[in-house]
């Protein structure tokens, strides 16, 4: 039975939202109301799923239509969004901004208004609670890939967002890492929106949205959407036409 997200009040609403980059439409009049606890967004490369993530996160604004997260415009009110929405980027090196572990963890709290000493203390407390107190002053460049992923997730969790957007969270990781992270995600109370090209990683979701060429191609429970997605991808893989250039 799907759990209702404990944080939801209004969910994420897209109304006729479109995005174009230098004149080329990447998302076409997208209308969605996302309230489920576990949501998967799947599609091929170039289907517009990363753009949709950036749109929901407020990193870009729609060229037409609008986006609301719990009634707030995510592109306008960045400060208010911090407690509503966190983003886990695919590559930790694109997310980590600071040279040491504790600075990275404290940054989000400072952004939410905590003073530096308090934020640092909170970051250290979290590290200690996770049995990693000795990490505080460590240089992030000395962490392994898996440790960086862990750091990125903690940095977001410390800010306590109600929803976390995951961008290809398991891509490029070895199998034990994938299992560990998947387990960590599964226990999170937050609403998770996972963007991926890998149907297996969203097979447990409450709702799966399949994007194709910037439009919703199918939307429903994974049992309905994923089999067709897999068979279509297999068919595409059989053909040999990959010669079209975009634009």
């Amino acid at each position: 039975m799907p759990l209702a997200s404990p944080f939801s009040d209004d969910g994420i609403l897209l109304q006729d939202a479109s995005v174009a980059f230098s004149g080329r439409r990447v998302l076409h009049g997208m209308s969605l109301h996302l309230t489920e606890h576990r949501i998967g967004i799947i599609g091929r490369n170039g289907s517009g799923k990363s753009t949709l993530l950036r749109l929901i996160a407020g990193l870009i604004a729609p060229d037409a239509g609008h986006v609301r997260v719990d009634g707030i415009d995510p592109a306008k009110d960045r400060r208010k969004m911090l407690t509503r929405l966190g983003i886990l980027f695919q590559n930790p090196d694109h997310q980590i901004l600071f040279p040491t572990v504790e600075e990275e963890l404290a940054f989000g709290l400072i952004q939410m208004g905590a003073d530096k000493a308090k934020a640092t203390a909170q970051a250290r407390a979290r590290l200690a609670a996770e049995g990693r107190a000795h990490w505080a002053g460590a240089a992030v460049s000395t962490l392994s890939q898996g440790q960086r992923h862990w750091l990125c997730l903690q940095a977001i969790l410390l800010m306590g967002p109600a929803t976390i957007l995951l961008d290809e969270p398991l891509a490029g990781l070895d199998l034990p890492m994938q299992a560990r992270l998947a387990r960590a995600f599964a226990t999170l109370p937050q609403r998770l929106i996972t963007i991926t090209h890998d149907p297996a990683s969203v097979s447990d979701a409450d709702r799966v949205i399949w994007l194709e060429a910037g439009k919703v191609h199918a939307d429903g429970p994974p049992g309905d959407v994923l089999p067709e997605f897999v068979s279509t991808m297999d068919q595409l893989g059989m053909s040999d036409a990959d010669a079209d250039l975009s634009g």
Partner: peptide, 15 residues
């Protein structure tokens, strides 16, 4: 490219 991603990461956490 990194500068664009860092700008995203900054904005993602309040800018």
């Amino acid at each position: 490219d990194d500068a664009e991603r860092v700008a995203d990461a900054l904005r993602a956490r309040g800018g």
